[in-house]
Lab assay of single mutants.
Amino acid sequence: MSIQHFRVALIPFFAAFCLPVFAHPETLVKVKDAEDQLGARVGYIELDLNSGKILESFRPEERFPMMSTFKVLLCGAVLSRVDAGQEQLGRRIHYSQNDLVEYSPVTEKHLTDGMTVRELCSAAITMSDNTAANLLLTTIGGPKELTAFLHNMGDHVTRLDRWEPELNEAIPNDERDTTMPAAMATTLRKLLTGELLTLASRQQLIDWMEADKVAGPLLRSALPAGWFIADKSGAGERGSRGIIAALGPDGKPSRIVVIYTTGSQATMDERNRQIAEIGASLIKHW
């Protein structure tokens, strides 16, 4: 067993022997301040990774656009098919120029040779490549099948209805392509620590998230040296922004954090800054 596999296998073990965790309302004060600064709703939840206990939450059962955070769930569904012998990570998928959609920095470079399922998941999570996500959605049967996968996990809230990039439209009061912070946090925890996926697939999923290259201005910008984070960000229309993450000190994750916002007129930089400040408060009061 590799060191990384050992780390993920012992996530519940280490967490069980940690000192009790206590909620700190100071972080919620910052979440509410972010709402004021952005002029928009902000949803927040913080779960203990081992027990699933909610440590703090704000608007945990209000719907927010998922945006690209759905790509972690998508690759979880792909990995479940791999575990069941219905898919192979090494299978190569070929596609054409007509398949390319807006923001496809990886797939646009491989029109000639195609990409493997493993490479597509890596591109979808680490670079948020939209064509990679659409190609992977095709392998599982489309958005409705991802929703069905989530329902089978016990998540009857999260739903995907459309493809990239239309799913980022974020129309107010439109339930399409949305989740709730509580539902997303619980589902992410199941994917990373539950028995739904094999140990190898859980490790692969967290490795992809740990290698995320496009979430630097968010929670990662607030992390002290030595902290662990595996995350996936999302951005959408109407001032929408979000991030889902597993993080913790001492090089291992111990909490799940989900943050979503929508309806702001603020710039992307300002949305990023507010999420980073929430992260800084979380870490300060850990």
Results as ranks from 00 to 15, higher is better:
G114N: 12
R81F: 12
Y260L: 08
L49T: 05
T262D: 09
P224D: 06
E195V: 10
I125F: 02
E195S: 12
N173F: 12
S264D: 08
Q97N: 02
V82F: 09
G43P: 00
L47H: 10
R189C: 06
T116A: 15
H110T: 14
T267R: 04
G85W: 09
V82I: 13
M67H: 11
A222S: 04
M209L: 14
Q97I: 04
E26P: 12
K71Y: 00
V117Q: 03
V42C: 03
L160K: 03
R220C: 12
L219T: 05
L135H: 05
K252Q: 05
K232M: 00
Q203K: 01
T198H: 05
A246R: 07
A266T: 03
P25L: 09
K53A: 11
D33M: 02
S264C: 09
L188D: 01
T198K: 06
P249H: 08
R81Q: 07
T126I: 08
A230F: 11
T147N: 03
F149L: 10
V31H: 01
P65A: 11
M153W: 02
A276T: 10
L55F: 09
T126M: 09
L219G: 08
R220E: 06
Y103D: 02
M127Y: 05
R241K: 15
M180Y: 02
E169C: 05
S221N: 05
G263Y: 10
Y260C: 04
A246N: 15
Q203N: 04
Q97E: 09
I206A: 11
T69C: 13
A132T: 15
I243C: 15
I93K: 15
D113P: 04
N152V: 05
E277T: 05
G52A: 12
S51C: 15
M127I: 07
E164K: 01
F70K: 13
G242K: 00
L150V: 08
I278S: 01
G76Y: 10
L197P: 06
I140S: 07
E62F: 01
V29N: 11
L89T: 14
S221G: 07
A200L: 11
S254W: 08
A123L: 09
T262Y: 08
S233W: 05
E56R: 10
E26I: 14
S221T: 11
E119S: 11
V157N: 11
L196W: 07
A77S: 12
N152A: 06
P249L: 07
D36Q: 02
T116L: 13
E119H: 10
D231F: 03
L199W: 09
F64Q: 11
G39K: 03
V157L: 06
L218T: 09
K109S: 04
P143K: 02
R271M: 14
V257Y: 12
L49M: 14
K71A: 00
G239M: 11
I229Y: 10
M268S: 10
A215V: 12
G263N: 10
H156C: 05
L47Y: 03
G239L: 01
T116F: 13
V257H: 02
D83I: 02
Q204A: 03
P249F: 07
M184W: 01
N173C: 11
H285V: 06
Q97L: 09
L73Q: 15
G142D: 07
M180I: 02
G76D: 01
L136M: 09
N134R: 12
K32V: 15
S281I: 05
P65K: 04
H24Q: 08
P181Q: 00
A124L: 06
K71W: 00
T27Y: 11
T178G: 03
I229V: 07
A148Y: 06
A230G: 08
I256C: 12
H94C: 05
D113C: 03
M209H: 00
E277W: 04
T267Q: 10
I259D: 00
S51K: 07
M66R: 00
D207W: 12
L282S: 07
L191W: 03
L89G: 03
P65D: 01
A133C: 05
V157D: 08
P249G: 09
I229A: 13
V117E: 09
K213H: 03
T139R: 12
A84H: 12
R81N: 03
L111W: 05
P224R: 09
E87V: 07
L136S: 08
I243N: 11
V117F: 09
Q274N: 10
E175N: 11
E169K: 06
E46T: 14
V82C: 13
A200C: 15
L150I: 08
R176L: 11
W286R: 05
L205K: 00
N152H: 10
I275R: 00
V257L: 13
S96H: 06
T158W: 01
K284T: 05
S254Y: 02
G141N: 02
A34F: 10
L197H: 08
Q204Y: 02
E277M: 06
E166C: 14
